[in-house]
Design a binder for these strands. Structure first.
Lengths: 154, 154
DNA sequence: ATAATTCCTAAAGCTAACTTTAGCTCAAGT
DNA sequence: ACTTGAGCTAAAGTTAGCTTTAGGAATTAT
């Protein structure tokens, strides 16, 4: 039975649209921290619906779960977060989102210059300068673009 | 020995800054198709330097290797691509990049509206409408955001 | 002629963000 | 009391984009 302010993982899944397995996974990642009832089942708070909603939105923005966990860490822990609390941490995203858009725009502008020449060569093309977008996805070492250079005739 | 227009994988790696293993992987993905010499070693064309440069740039833009392969498919196969050919397929990216920037901008604007209210609730928040950014990364099924809704008090 | 490089293949490993499976326990409905 | 339906854990599987490892074979340098 669900008590006034407690909901089961299934209910939470229905309300957020997330899969039950995803919610469990989020718990292992420290994004939610449900209590347990006598039988060992997870009991979430209703406010976790909004918490997970926030996670979903942040993901749309392309943030990683690690980063999202950090931001969530800035919510007050002693009381249930209110609209203003959510509003505050959303501003963090706003700034990063702006930077992302700016970076992508810079990249596009460089591409414009390069479409004219069709060069795309490592030493002369502006696209190779590393001030670009965040990058760093996948795994393992990503190589910085050095200037080993393409010879003019290549 | 490398003949006039043929280079080894090591040379290609040096010229592009890519790891040898990455180049081999790109071959499995159909992004380059080197010939082999008598001893079974790969022989690339000098023009593959530019080809891989293009791949690297496209990745900066966030395109997947699958998508990049498609775009590369539009290059002429009978002759070595010239500046104009590269310029042409770059325009494809330009358009998609614009759309990406636009989508991210729309998302940011919605966030602006939401920062004011701090709602983030599934039924009323504009951030939940699915016109947003490309998404679809990671693996497995991603759930479309339905409107199961959060009740006002949640 | 050798030693030192470079290259080759196949298979396994890695990260992120989850899902799927297997086997079992809890809780709810009748 | 019993049968479903939820939930639980641990481990393995998935995708993308590569790297690492292992064990040989081809090249290049001396």
């Amino acid at each position: 039975m669900e008590r006034r302010n407690e909901i089961s993982i299934g209910t939470l899944a229905n309300r957020t649209g997330l899969a039950v397995s995803a919610i469990r996974y989020y718990e292992t990642q420290g994004l939610v921290a449900p209590e347990r009832n006598a039988g060992g089942q997870r009991r979430f708070l209703r406010s976790d619906i909004r918490r997970l909603s926030f996670v979903m939105i942040a993901q749309k923005f392309g943030f990683t779960l690690d980063r999202i966990r950090e931001v969530l860490g800035r919510l007050p822990e002693k009381r249930t977060p209110n609209a203003n609390d959510w509003s505050e941490i959303s501003k963090d995203f706003r700034a990063e989102l702006d930077e992302q858009i700016a970076a992508l725009t810079r990249l596009r502008d460089k591409l414009d210059g390069c479409i004219g020449c069709g060069c795309l060569s490592l030493d002369r093309c502006a696209l190779y300068n590393p001030d670009d977008v965040a990058a760093e996805k996948g795994s393992g070492p990503r190589y910085l673009l050095g200037d080993e250079a393409v010879r003019p005739e290549d």
